[in-house]
Amino acid sequence: MTSSPTAIILTFLRQQQGTANFSAPQPDDNLFELALLTSLQFIELIQLLESKTGISIDFTRTDPSSLVTLQGLSAAFGSAAPSTLNT
């Protein structure tokens, strides 16, 4: 079964945090401000999403500031993030 972009992102964040008490961010939370992503992890996440979804981001048209939330990332890779998340 193919995972949704939102599921891929949450799995990635959970792995990066490496803690059992990981709680999913809200759709519009800035993942950098929550210290859930660093710039290098952002690159890795984009590469992971591109490989899993087959969608490539054109950064000459996309400002990365639109990709710092769960909502923004999910939308860029083809799915709408739910308004609230079950953790």
Binding site: N30, T60, P64, S65
Partner: peptide, 26 residues
């Protein structure tokens, strides 16, 4: 450049037609 745009500022460079670039290699 806005902090979050610095992650991959290609669009910013093109939109503003920057002529001088000064940054860390990262």
């Amino acid at each position: 450049i806005p902090p979050m745009s610095r992650l991959a500022p290609a669009r910013f460079i093109l939109e503003h037609q920057l002529t001088i670039w000064v940054s860390v290699p990262s």
